[in-house]
Design a protein around this nucleic acid. Sequence first.
DNA 1: CTGAAAGCGCTAACAT
DNA 2: ATGTTAGCGCTTTCAG
Lengths: 345, 345
Amino acid sequence: MDTQITIADVAKYAGVSTATAGRVVGGYGNVSEKSREKVLKAVKELNYRPNVVAQSLRRNTTNTIAVILGSIKNNYCNKLIYAIEKEAQKHGCNVIICNTHEDPAQEYRHLQEMYSRHVDGVILMSAIKDFETVGEDYKNLYINDMPKVFVDRTIQGLNSHVIQSNNKEMSYAAVNYLIGLGHKKIGVLATDNYSTVRERVEGYRKALEDNGIPYFSDLILYAYAKEGNQDYKERLEYIRERGITAIYVLNNTLCIDVLNMVKKQTLRIPEDISLVVWDDEEINDYLDITTIAQPVERIGKIAVKNLLKQKIKDIDTENHEILKAEIIFRKSCREIEKENNVKAL
Amino acid sequence: MDTQITIADVAKYAGVSTATAGRVVGGYGNVSEKSREKVLKAVKELNYRPNVVAQSLRRNTTNTIAVILGSIKNNYCNKLIYAIEKEAQKHGCNVIICNTHEDPAQEYRHLQEMYSRHVDGVILMSAIKDFETVGEDYKNLYINDMPKVFVDRTIQGLNSHVIQSNNKEMSYAAVNYLIGLGHKKIGVLATDNYSTVRERVEGYRKALEDNGIPYFSDLILYAYAKEGNQDYKERLEYIRERGITAIYVLNNTLCIDVLNMVKKQTLRIPEDISLVVWDDEEINDYLDITTIAQPVERIGKIAVKNLLKQKIKDIDTENHEILKAEIIFRKSCREIEKENNVKAL
DNA sequence: CTGAAAGCGCTAACAT
DNA sequence: ATGTTAGCGCTTTCAG
């Protein structure tokens, strides 16, 4: 980028002032038809392109938004970014993408950087579970004046603008469905205890409770919890011994682990084990797996809209928008024989 | 972003000049220990963060790179972006992502915008097949001084810096493998005739030729070709009638269509139909599908490195780096009985 | 070692 | 309708 042509070059070439040239290029103010033509001609001849960096500095708006999330590789995140980029384009915004790898330190760093970059806002799927755990030096990153919209997850103890699915309700419905088929020992495979997971587990508990089925915390396996079990794949294998008849997977990325386990043990779905999975993908249709599909595209779209609204008026900073997910019933769940139906405890 | 604290504020607070404050914050030049402390203290107290937009304008470098490609939803692109973002972070760069949806008009628009944004470079998986088809007004977007690295695809008739897999060779090897198993009627499912696809088809042809097997162009199905067949899923179904015993899929996203077709016709893999697919995913391992795995992570990493190198020295603009892909043999291909082994033509 | 001041390219208030 | 000019926040040359 050595030879930058500026508005001054255009003005000189057209024989007008920079102000007039600017008015034509920027499309504001009043300019005579004659001047307009001259400037337009100059723009064309010189192949002039405004310097967005200078515009950003002057206008104090960058037409850029950022998405900060665990990893673009995750199915949900992937669709989310797709939707965000699409909507952002409509508003003339570009999208910067930042992966945190679910590491708070990286999240802080990205937030800091985006603040310095003066992006018009950040869409955040935070790796932070509880605001109390955020160091004093970093708390401000979450409460400064940079517009923010949280998606999928909330941070406990932080009032914020969030958009997410009706996790608890759908979880209740899904587990209720399994119970209706006669399942009592329903294993849960979760990522880590993010708010989303907590909400889904709540729905799970409530469904159990409402049906008079006891809740055992050790039926819940947290795959990515820092506390330990990277051996979750091994632990998954004891499903049979523990009399589990159905597995409820809270994140699509974990589904493959269940499938591999089932294959390894030469079990069949749904004959030996029933399966319900959060998030829907094409492959789930092929494999006939019952899923809970979130309206990801809409979540992304709304996130962008609300984010850009924040920039304009200072309201809307706290808000909670909940969209309905939907169960897609396929053939991965089967009815359990009555003989197994021993009264619990 | 109402109350921006500037270097002037810091300077005033610390009782030094903006120059000195700038030297401390920017970490250049010589500053006395005393001044340094005062400034650092001011930075801390005022919670000062440099304005990256102003820095970019002044330094004429934005520490931003862009990735322009069809869609982040595509498996290859997804991994690519992941790798690019990771490497870019190491160099202190952020990544803007642009989806073209394989539409040249959108590609032009994005290139234009990125040029105006003065990004430090663009990584491009172009939707353009032949440079001749680019309108005169847009040709310059591809030959201006903005650093560019092309990945996966080249544009015919444009000298450029490209990084890709050894498509022809691996294609040859894969088809040769199928032929070795006795397959003669090998159907190909491709996206559209991008350079990548052309190279793979070349390898396919050559393998056929070297084994004395006739080549029939109608065995190649272009799923996304503008010219017509959005009915490619229907056309896929005539596989059996046409005596095709193996399908060679040139893009992972098309694999699901084959799987669905196979399922619909209650065929089995590999008993009834053999399958080889470009690009490897976890699910392919589960489904025991033989794939050709590209070193996507390395491609992304190298792309970033080479891109940033271009910014510094003006060499390297034309370059062709070819990385080796690898066949992962699983169980989706089977040996054909000798009775089918009629001499061709 | 430090400070004053110019200037990156653009916008917009102000003057004509 | 048009031009002059200040200034967005930062870096860096040039003096001292």
